[in-house]
Structures are given as C-alpha cells and as structure tokens.
C-alpha cells in the first residue's frame, strides 16, 4: 500500500483563510459589551460571532473537500509562486498594484495632476503603449478627469506641491 502525502491545494487555502478569519473574530468579540438587559443575543458580539461560526463550518468543509478531491486540483508549493513571478503578464499585474500603492502614497504630496499623469504614464508604458502615445493618452485622461471631477463636480482634488506655484 502506498502512503499518500498531503498536498496543499487552493481549496485548503480557502478553508484555512476562513478558519483564520473566524478565529480572529472570535478572539476579539469577547471584549465587546453585553446586550440590552444582559441578553447576549442582542449585544454587538452576537452577529459577528454567528458569522464566525458559519465561517468555521465553511473552512472545515473546504479543508475536507480539498482533501477528498485532491486529485482535481493542482498542489500549491513555493514553486507555484516562483513560476507565477517568472510570467511576464503576472509581473505586470504586480507592478500595476505597486503603481497604485505609489499613487496612494504620493497623491496628497504631489497632488492630483502630477500623480495622475505619472501613474498613467508608467501604467500605459508598462502595458506596451508607444512613448509618444503614452504621453498623449496620459495628458488626455488627466485633463478629462480634472474637467469632470474638479471642474464640473467641483470636487476638491489635492494640489500638492503644485500649490506652491499657484496651481
């Protein structure tokens, strides 16, 4: 009889995430105050606790399902992530996420105009748009959004460092 080794697959990961989330909830809610007239069921912890229990059930099921149907799913190892990083398209997706993080961090500092233009230039260039077209599209989108949100709907968009030059 051959001994089957345990292989982690996506169903296991979903199950584990459910269990971690429910454990986190159940560890926080005991500090919540009790409900009216000490009826625990009506307190602020009742509903999150109930949902955490549903998640425990879902997590348990997913772990069982992932094990029983292990052959239907490819196993996830460190190599899975390494291979993903090697793929050019996935790397682009990660870079786009990084650009968005940069956008969030720089938005108030550099202001709307500079951050948006910079973000779009990097984004479009990374997606293979030729240089001149990248600049044209970046300017076009920045101007359209400024017109729509800043001018038409009078939403206050941060000026950032451009405030020093009166923009």
């Amino acid at each position: 009889m051959t001994k089957k080794s345990f292989r982690l697959n996506q169903e296991h990961i979903i199950g584990l995430v459910c269990l971690i989330v429910s454990a986190t909830i159940l560890s926080i809610t005991p500090s919540f105050p009790k409900g009216k007239a000490n009826i625990g069921l009506t307190g602020p912890a009742f509903f999150p606790d109930l949902l955490a229990l549903v998640f425990v059930f879902c997590g348990g099921y997913q772990l069982w399902y992932g094990t029983v149907n292990a052959t239907a799913y490819s196993s996830i190892t460190l190599n899975t992530f390494r291979n993903l990083l090697k793929k050019k398209e996935t790397r682009t997706a990660y870079l786009v996420i990084l650009y968005m993080v940069g956008f969030i961090l720089l938005f108030d500092v550099l202001g709307f105009l500079l951050t948006t233009f910079l973000f779009l230039t990097l984004f479009l260039f990374r997606l293979g748009v030729p240089k001149l077209q990248t600049l044209l599209y970046a300017t076009f989108f920045t101007a359209i959004i400024y017109f729509l949100f800043g001018w038409l709907f009078t939403i206050s968009l941060p000026s950032g460092i451009l405030a020093y030059v009166g923009l």
């Binding site: 973000f119 984004f123 997606l127």
Partner: peptide
C-alpha cells in the same frame, strides 16, 4: 488604453 482609463 481602455484598461488605463478604467483604472484611473
């Protein structure tokens, strides 16, 4: 270009 527009 469409994807960039949607993102921003």
């Amino acid at each position: 270009v469409v994807l960039a527009g949607i993102t921003i």
